[in-house]
């Protein structure tokens, strides 16, 4: 069953990748990237069980955290054109 679930997840990633490659707007691509991130997290957990190596779970946790931070960083970049808040920069200068 673990193998079957892994295969299903790989198909999911492939479909999301198709959307990321085709997606008309940048937000479609980001949504696809976030879906791929969730799937990658699950894939890492499943691989840990398949190989009998529970350390993979730590990688999965880290990947999940990075996924959220990554999406928000990209959105902030799209929104502001840069990663640092203007007001925060001013505070630093003062």
């Amino acid at each position: 069953m673990l193998t079957a679930a892994t295969l299903a997840l790989l198909v999911t990633v492939a479909l999301a990748l198709a959307r990321a490659a085709y997606g008309p707007s940048v937000f479609d691509r980001l949504q696809a990237a976030s879906t791929i991130g969730t799937c990658a997290m699950l894939l890492l957990a499943l691989l840990g069980f398949l190989n009998g190596r529970p350390e993979f779970l730590d990688l999965a946790l880290t990947y999940g955290l990075l996924n959220v931070i990554g999406i928000i960083a990209v959105l902030k970049f799209i929104h502001l054109g840069r990663l640092v808040n203007k007001s925060a920069e001013n505070v630093e200068d003062a």
Partner: peptide, 21 residues
């Protein structure tokens, strides 16, 4: 696990089929 795999697949099919973002 099978249920989870099924719903993951359904979600990605929706990602392909749906008309807008």
């Amino acid at each position: 696990l099978a249920g989870g795999a099924f719903f993951c697949l359904v979600g990605s099919i929706g990602l392909i089929r749906m008309p807008d973002f």
